[in-house]
């Protein structure tokens, strides 16, 4: 049995761990609230953009196709976190990415990765995947317009030059603090709006387009990709903090349980020690009397 002193030391150490995990949980909760708010604020932009791009891109299907001589490469942007301690969040995203990679390879495509977040970057470098770019240490915030713009610009440049034929983003989509679902979203080539194929298609609005559709389509396409990536980053950010909050909460609960168990053990050890001392005193008295 562990000595009383060792158990006391152990309890003190678990207590300080518990303090840390509790503080981390509170921080994650505050950031999650902020991230959720940002996600909500971005919604009108996405909805409005989707409406405009659907009505405009629907009229120019040719512009959506990759160049004729496009290679056979699929570019995957994988969004993970920079830091750990968030449960299975990164593992799940990475597993999804690897599945998508396998699928693409089976379909005869070459896969290139663009890693956002240190965890994913480190992992893919370790398994020697073809990582063509990365953005790590995205603190204090992951979901910034500047980052989305940067990634989108790169994606579109590769797509227009024919280097990549397909591009998509993998991120954890936020459902609740307890549940984040890894998601693959294909961005390029832009899928034609469903309205153009459906029977119940709404009549396309007749727009006056300035300067011309040909000049506006690249602008809209770029905005569309930027908006989609920004949205993915927002989802990923909210998911990360949700996962972290949940992980830290269960860590705190574990610490509470462990402290209760150790306290019990400590009391038992103390009692055993007292009993032993009493026995010694009684034994000593008996010896003197005898």
């Amino acid at each position: 049995m562990a000595t009383l002193k060792a158990i006391r030391r152990r309890i003190a150490s678990v207590k300080s761990t518990q303090q840390i995990t509790r503080a981390m949980k509170l921080v994650a909760a505050a950031r999650l609230r902020r991230a959720q708010e940002a996600l909500l604020n971005a919604r009108p932009y996405h909805e409005a953009f989707k409406r405009v791009s659907d009505s405009l891109l629907g009229s120019a299907p040719d512009a959506l196709k990759p160049p004729e001589d496009a290679g056979n490469v699929r570019l995957l942007v994988v969004v993970t976190s920079d830091r750990g301690l968030c449960g299975g969040y990164n593992t799940n995203v990475i597993r999804m990415a690897e599945e998508t990679m396998r699928e693409a390879t089976a379909a005869g495509r070459e896969v290139r990765l663009f890693a956002i977040g240190r965890k994913g970057f480190d992992h893919f470098r370790r398994i020697r995947a073809n990582v063509v770019g990365d953005r790590v240490n995205n603190s204090p915030r992951l979901a910034t317009v500047a980052l989305a713009r940067d990634v989108a610009a790169r994606m579109l440049t590769d797509f227009r030059s024919g280097t990549v034929a397909e591009a998509g983003v993998i991120y954890a989509s936020f459902r609740s603090a307890l549940s984040q679902r890894p998601t693959y979203e294909q961005l390029l080539p832009v899928a034609p709006p469903p309205a153009s194929a459906g029977v119940s298609a709404a009549p396309a609005t007749d727009y006056l387009i300035e300067p011309s559709a040909a000049e506006l389509v690249p602008v809209v396409m770029r905005g569309y990709v930027e908006a989609a990536i920004f949205h993915a980053l927002l989802e990923a950010e909210a998911s990360e903090y949700g996962a972290k909050m949940t992980a830290m909460e269960s860590a705190t609960n574990n610490a509470v349980d462990m402290i209760a168990r150790l306290t019990l053990e400590m009391n038992r050890a103390r009692q055993a020690q007292i009993t032993r001392e009493l026995m010694e005193i009684v034994g000593g008295a008996e010896a003197l009397r005898g």
Binding site: N41, A42, P44, A227, F230
Partner: peptide, 9 residues
């Protein structure tokens, strides 16, 4: 008129 940005309306 609406002015919409990714950070809000």
């Amino acid at each position: 008129f609406r002015l919409v940005t990714p950070t809000g309306v």
